[in-house]
């Protein structure tokens, strides 16, 4: 079943790179809802049904951790799986994000890491019967 993804990053380049990574890495991708910050993403969640949010941390207006706090505080949104995709390197902050129920992917990342992280989420596990196309060019790091 296709996964609808909320993609929150203030970099248009990174949004395109992540989208391309998802397309190449065998994730059954449905709609991608791009947003440039956490506030835009909360607004998008009012009108879009998504199965997963991929969220940067350092963004203007509302950062990724503030967005995560809003999501977890809203009973309607709280179950949304959130994967933080960031350069954040502080173990304390990464641990704090994990305690808030987010998974973490460090930039730069490989397509395989992003794919495996998404497939590790409950309800988004990979269907082994589905074909998994290999990314052209082999092991690409993003």
């Amino acid at each position: 079943m296709p996964i609808n993804v909320l993609l929150v990053d203030d970099s248009a380049v990174m949004r395109r790179m992540i989208t391309r990574t998802l397309q190449l890495s065998g994730v059954p991708l449905g709609a991608v809802v791009p947003c440039a910050n956490g506030a835009e993403a909360l607004e998008a969640l009012r009108v879009s049904r998504v199965d997963l949010a991929l969220v940067d941390i350092n963004m203007p207006v509302m950062d990724g951790e503030q967005f995560l706090d809003h999501v977890r505080a809203d009973p309607r949104l709280a179950p949304l799986p959130v994967v933080i995709v960031s350069t954040e390197s502080s173990p304390t902050r990464v641990q704090r994000l994990r305690q808030k129920g987010a998974l973490f992917v460090h930039k730069p990342f490989t397509p395989e890491l992003l794919r495996d992280t998404i497939h590790s989420l409950p309800g988004l596990a990979h269907d082994p019967a589905a074909p998994t196309p290999a990314p052209p060019g082999g092991d690409l790091d993003f």
């Binding site: 970099s11 380049v13 990174m14 350092n58 350069t87 390197s89 930039k107 730069p108």
Partner: peptide
């Protein structure tokens, strides 16, 4: 800009 962001973050 994204290269600068990732360099700075790392």
């Amino acid at each position: 800009a994204e290269l600068a962001n990732v360099i700075c973050g790392n």
